[in-house]
Design a protein around this nucleic acid. Structure first.
Lengths: 204, 204, 204, 204
DNA sequence: TATGAATGAGCATTCATTCAT
DNA sequence: AATGAATGAATGCTCATTCAT
């Protein structure tokens, strides 16, 4: 590796890190104030620069939230896919998917909040159609687990699986609103309680 | 009643109705696009008038959302208070409160969505401090039900009631996101399924 | 005079009086808040009607101030013309013109305030060119008095009559800002003090 | 001084100058059209920019007039205070205060016009309470001079000093309406004539 | 005569974005 | 990399004016 090359790498790495810092600041603000209510100047200030400077790193405000959300979804699905590929039974899969969700929440709290708050609005924008795709895939994943569970007699027969799916979809991320990585309850503990509550409610 | 009087009443009623129409249009838009992202011109157009005309009926955009939310909360609490005053046991109170919530949701779908989406942001504004008061009262109401249930041995002893409260708080309104008055599932049916799922999860 | 005719007259008189009431209310508001800062609704409310009703009596807000100012100027000039036609000497004419001014101020306080505050702005509007004409005539009137006085040796020879004219023009109406018809100082008394002060200052 | 430092200074100075240019343009327009009747777009255009750009330099239209007026009053009072602290007799103090006023007028013509036109309206706004304070201080200053002069027998005994004060208050700035720095009459010359006229009128 | 709902142009202000430095 | 002055479209809101009743 030539010095020239090493230098370029150093710059590229520094640049990448600055981007990450800005993105983290943006995610925190988008999560707490909402995307529309957050100004790019606020993001810039939180990242220690001026408004105009942001545009050296990012094309637009939209690019920032796009990067935040797509990064989060990529990791989330990597984890979900690992679970569903494991060939477990319905109850175990249920448990593992919920646990995976809380693991993701722990690693991407701000992104989860943004995802929850802004998905509906952003999904109408073609650029963010992957949000709708993700929703669809999420629905298929859960319906498969739930329907299999009902068919196998593991879950209660009279269950409206469409309703249960919606219930899970709407509740699984809700802890993001108040969860703190260094709070009194660990993500695992919350997952355990969630599972105890909901799984008991649907088991045959 | 003199004709003069009847005339006055007719005008007052017509005016009140126009206000209600505008408010309904505003609620629908605030719910689907978010308060900040909805322009007063959009509200006006939905109500069949021009932007400036809105201000004949309302002081400000803020006044509109204020009227929407305070009206909704007033009705919601009238219903909740009726339930808690009935002196039922924990499980029955649980059931009735959930049922009441879905009844409210049925009558005020848009307001519920707005309440959920915008409470956090609006609550920082002194004018909307009643939103925080409502949250507090909601918390006390549920903790009382849950703690009593645990003490009486009706609910599982190992329940973290603070966590369950948060879960209920965040969950009870979520159906607002997809519920339709004229949809396949009635509010009562959804409430029933919801109760079956969660109540089973927490019963001893 | 037929009853029909009398009736019409009665209506016409009532109508004229309502106009006068509105105009008085408008003058008071224009004087205290400024023409631009006064809304037609405020004028209407002060006259005991609603905004739209004003337009039964007047074409526009501009028409109101026009009527206020032209009425005032007509009376003012009738009085001034009487003085200058009397053939008095410079000092007596000076005294009488000042006295006339304060008499006018007493009768048209609000109009005087408006005239002072708004002339400059309104004068640019062709509709109000008579304001500029009045200014010009006022200037000629005073320069004639002052120049004659200097020529006759009644006023100090080194007087810059252009400057004195401007001084009088700018000061003669100033009491309008604080004068009250029922205040401790009568218009005559104020005129006397004004004359004592300024006439002493310019007499030879 | 390092290049870095010099550069910073240069930017700060350039920025300060741009602000001053905008402020001068605003003052000229506020003076000639009135504060309320002047739009920020007009100010911006006069300063060679677009409406929105003004807000890079100033918080609001109100901030602009605030800066104009408070700057003017600060300088005015520095000059007045110097005069009153000199311990001169009533007639000399009178002369010096009038001269100071015309000096101020020469330096701040537009601000003086604005002060005169808008003080009454703005004074009701708490942010501009200093305008009322200034009025009060001005009154006390002049009454002290006049009352002392009457007591010492320098001014005429029958003088209504309250009336004379009002006259001076309303009069001293009136030349602002027509004074031009490059006009035929210098500020000193106008002050001299003004003093000759009014001082002669009040001397014993 | 008067009402009151509605109009629509105009206003101060905000903010994502650009660009010369 | 970052600055900071400027842009310009869009926003909430005001207000003189209109008009059917």
């Amino acid at each position: 590796m030539s010095p020239r090359q090493r230098d370029t790498d150093g710059n590229a790495a520094a640049r990448e890190q600055r981007r990450a810092e800005v993105l983290a600041a943006a995610a925190e603000l988008f999560a707490s104030r909402g995307y529309a209510a957050t100004t790019v100047r606020e993001v810039a200030e939180a990242a220690g620069m001026l408004g105009g400077s942001l545009y050296y790193h990012f094309d637009s405000k939209e690019s920032m939230i796009n990067e935040i959300l797509s990064g989060f979804l990529t990791e989330m699905w990597a984890d979900y896919d690992r679970v569903t590929a494991a060939g477990l039974g319905p109850a175990e899969t249920f448990t593992e998917l919920i646990t995976s969700s809380f693991r993701t929440l722990d690693a991407h709290r701000a992104a989860v909040v943004i995802y929850q708050k802004e998905s509906g609005q952003l999904g109408r924008n073609p650029r963010f159609s992957y949000l709708n795709d993700s929703q669809r895939k999420f629905r298929e994943m859960w319906l498969k687990v739930l329907d299999t569970g009902v068919k196998d007699g593991v879950f209660r027969a009279e269950l409206d699986t469409g309703l249960v799916y919606r219930f899970i979809r709407d509740t699984v991320w809700l802890a993001a609103g108040w969860y703190r990585h260094d709070g009194p309850l660990s993500a695992e503990e919350i997952a355990r309680q969630y599972i105890a509550m909901v799984l008991n409610g649907i088991l045959a």
